[in-house]
Simulated assay, not measured.
Amino acid sequence: MSIAVRSTNRPHLARQVRLEWDPVREQHVLLAPEGVLVLNQTGAIILGLCDGERTVDGIVEELGRRYDRVVGDEVRDFLSRLAAKRWVELGGE
């Protein structure tokens, strides 16, 4: 299932989901009642920017300031997959 992510959405973690550092794995993880998702560095940075205040476009812009090449469609696809699992809520437009 695919969820449409708009540039004006203001994504944030769902209420029951937490982004944490796992010292055993030495990686960020997304913890939810349904399980654990081990994140790569990029995924953790994206989710760290999902504060419910920034828009998707704002997140892409911030990533563009930090890194040479950022593909907005890849960020939207990542958020779409997590929204489909109900780990991320997209927020109002």
Rank of each mutant, 00 (worst) to 15 (best):
L31M: 08
V17E: 06
E93D: 15
E61M: 09
L31F: 09
A14S: 07
E53N: 14
R25Q: 15
V38E: 14
G48C: 01
N9A: 11
G64T: 13
E61G: 01
G58I: 02
P23C: 10
V75D: 02
I59E: 05
Y67S: 13
W87Y: 05
V56D: 05
V70W: 03
R54A: 15
L37W: 14
L90E: 01
G72T: 07
T55S: 07
E26I: 01
L37Y: 10
E93W: 06
E93T: 14
D51G: 00
L30V: 08
R25N: 14
P11W: 03
V75F: 13
V88S: 06
E62Q: 11
A84R: 07
V29I: 11
R18L: 09
P33Q: 09
I59W: 00
L47M: 05
I45D: 15
G92W: 01
L39A: 09
T42P: 03
G58K: 01
A83C: 10
T8W: 06
F78E: 06
T8A: 12
E53H: 07
R65I: 00
E20R: 13
W21C: 05
G35E: 06
D57V: 05
Q41A: 12
T8N: 11
L37C: 12
R66I: 00
R15I: 10
V36F: 04
E26A: 00
W21V: 05
Q41L: 10
E89H: 11
T55R: 02
Q41R: 14
